[in-house]
Nucleic acid binder design. Structure first.
Lengths: 199, 199
DNA sequence: CACTTAATGTTGACACGGTCTACTTAAAGA
DNA sequence: TCTTTAAGTAGACCGTGTCAACATTAAGTG
C-alpha cells in the first residue's frame, strides 16, 4: 500500500531519488548536463522541490559525491575481503577495482574528486577517508604477512593512492597518448609497485 | 605610438588579453567565477567582443589550458636543462617543479587536466604531449647515464606522471588527511621512485 | 477525531550568463 | 578615395539557479 507509482503530491523519498537521478544523469551525460530543472523533471517533481532537501545545487552534488565514495569504498572492500584469494592477489584486485570504478563511472569519479563539490563538507571528508582507509588496511595486512616492507603504512597508502588516482584521472580525462595499451601499462605499474614496496 | 592605454575602439590584441585575464581570474577565484561578461569588463571591452576570437566560452577555456601546458612544459624544461646539476638531481627538481606548479596554480592546473576544456582539440593534445615528453626525456637521459633501469621509458614516464598527477590532484583538491606533511611525504615518494626505477 | 503545525511540493518572478543577430567603427588593400 | 573586411558594440532571447509566497498533506496533540 505504501508505494504507488501514481503521482502523489508527496514523493516519498525525494532526497534519494534526486541523488540517484544525479548519478544516472552524470554518468550518461556528464556533470554539465545536470540542471536542477532537468533533474526535477526526470524525477517527476517541480523545479524547486529539490530545495526542500538541499540548500542549493552544490549541496546536492556534494551529497551525490558522498554516495559515490560509499559505493567506491564498497567496491574496494569487496576486493579486500575476498577470502578465496591470498593477500597480494587481493591487493592487485583492489587496484583493478579502483581503475574499473573510475573508468565505468568517469564523470561520477570526477565529481567525487573534483572541486565542484563543497570541499569543507564533513561527511564528504569522512567517506573519502573511509575509501583511503581501505587502501591503508590492505597495506597493513600486507605488512603483517611480510609481503611488503615495513615503512610507514600511511605513506605507502598515499603513494598507492596517488598512483591509482593519477592513472585513473589521466585515462578518463584522455591525457595519455592514443597508442597506450592500458592492460600492458597496468602490468608494468603493478611491477613497479611491487619493486617499490618490497624490502 | 603603437600602444596607447587610452581606450581605442580596437583593442590591439584582445585574444591574448582575454587569455591572460582568464588565467589571472581563474587563479584568484576559480573556474566558476569566470563569465564572458566579467572577463570582458575586466579587459575593458563589450560583453560579446570575445566571440570575434573564440567560438564560445569553452574554446576560450581550451585556449587558456593550452597556454597552461606551455607554461607547465617550460617550468619542467627549466629544471630538466639545469646543467649545474647532475641528472638525478634534475629529475628530482622536475618533480618539485611539477608539484609547485600545481599548487601555485591550482585552478589553472585543474582546468588543464579537467574536462571543462574541449578534449578533442589538437593543439591541446599537442601541448599536453609536449609536457609529457619532458618527463620522457629526463627518463631517457637517466637511462643513458645508467641511473635507472632499462625498462620501456614510455611506461616509466607514464608511471611517474601518474604519480605526480595523482599526488598533485589529491593535494590541491584537499583529499589528503589534514595531518599529512607534504614535505616528508615527498621524501618518501622520492624514495619509492628510486626503488622502483633502479635495477 | 478535529485542529494545529511542520514538512514537502508548486508556481511566479528575478537576475545572471551564454550567445545569436544586426549594426558600427576603423584598419587594410586596391 | 573607395571598398572590403576584421574587430567591437548593443539588443534580445533563452536557459538556469534560486527566492518568496502559496498549496497540500503528513504528523502530532488535545
Amino acid at each position: 500500500m505504501a508505494k504507488e507509482n501514481k503521482q502523489k503530491y508527496h514523493h516519498g523519498d525525494l532526497r534519494t531519488a534526486l541523488i540517484n537521478a544525479t548519478i544516472e544523469m552524470i554518468n550518461q551525460q556528464g556533470v554539465s548536463s545536470i540542471t536542477m530543472r532537468n533533474l526535477s523533471e526526470w524525477v517527476g517533481v517541480s523545479r524547486t522541490a529539490a530545495y526542500r532537501h538541499f540548500d542549493d545545487k552544490s549541496a546536492l552534488l556534494t551529497a551525490t559525491a558522498i554516495e559515490g565514495f560509499r559505493q567506491f569504498s564498497e567496491a574496494l572492500r569487496v576486493a579486500r575481503l575476498d577470502e578465496s584469494k591470498d593477500e597480494i592477489t587481493r591487493f592487485r584486485m583492489m587496484g583493478q577495482a579502483y581503475i574499473n570504478f573510475a573508468i565505468e563511472n568517469a564523470a561520477y569519479y570526477r565529481l567525487m574528486f573534483g572541486d565542484t563539490v563543497i570541499q569543507e563538507n564533513e561527511k564528504l571528508r569522512a567517506t573519502c577517508d573511509d575509501a583511503f582507509r581501505e587502501l591503508l588496511m590492505i597495506i597493513e595486512l600486507l605488512q603483517e604477512v611480510k609481503a611488503i616492507c615495513c615503512d610507514d603504512p600511511k605513506n605507502q597508502a598515499i603513494y598507492i593512492w596517488s598512483l591509482m588516482h593519477g592513472l585513473s584521472s589521466l585515462v578518463i580525462d584522455n591525457k595519455l597518448q592514443a597508442d597506450v595499451e592500458l592492460k600492458e601499462l597496468m602490468v608494468f605499474i603493478d611491477h613497479q609497485i611491487h619493486k617499490s614496496l618490497s624490502d
